[in-house]
Amino acid sequence: MNRLDEVFQQKKANILSVYFTAGFPGLTDTIPIMTHLQDAGADIIEVGIPYSDPVADGPTIQESNQAALKNGMNLRLLLQQLKDVRKQINIPIVLMGYFNPVMQYGIERFCQECHELGVDGFIFPDLPMQMYLDEFKEAFEKHGLHNIFLITPQTSDERVRAIDKNSDSFIYVVSSASITGAKTGISSEQEAYFQRICDLKLKNPTLIGFGISNQETFEKACKTAHGAIIGSAFIKVLEHSKDLKTDIHNYIRSVKKAHENIIH
């Protein structure tokens, strides 16, 4: 069974998904970071495939992409690093990145290998729904891989419903009209938008991302969604970390403080 399906079956609230860029801060930090995230209590791990031109990302993630590429990270190496990942990690793994590197790698080969490694799904911000349906859905589905779409405050209800219909794991609710890491905090306007999405009673669970950085924003997001996604704030933790294990544990614990007892 796809591990994303499992998580959403078992857990209906306070799901924490954490993004990091593969190859950052160090080329070989991929597996250690994933292990610490799992041990610290993250529910889903999003592994970023670094790209030279991440147009939907703000400076923090842009810089982590640049640093990772400089360190020598690329898609082939990442897949090699993930070879034995399922010996240690049993929570869902989602690969996130821009579509061009995947296109160059070859869609079929990519899906095949991801399936073998135990990857559960993908987030490609620059692969819109129609392109996915026309050209790539078949390959993803054949290998049991879920594709995760984004929605934003500007996405019409009609389109949200269409995206819901074509989604098969969760919907990534982008919290504001912005690139990653641009805004901190959650305004009442944003909360109204979360409520609007919640009221649509979608068939897929929702996770809110962009601007989630601490316990307060995580909890606000969890009020109207099944959980939340942290990206830039976690990259900042990694950026300044001298001891990955301690810092990751402390950070995740600080975000999930209120829920600790319920989860473990």
């Binding site: 590429l69 061009n100 590197p101 296109m103 160059q104 790698y105």
Partner: peptide, 20 residues
């Protein structure tokens, strides 16, 4: 070679790994 740049699928200069 063929790839995606600035929102369209076109010819672009890129590495084997798909970096522009």
């Amino acid at each position: 070679t063929m790839g995606i740049l600035h929102g369209s699928r076109t010819l672009l200069m890129q590495t084997e790994d798909g970096q522009v």
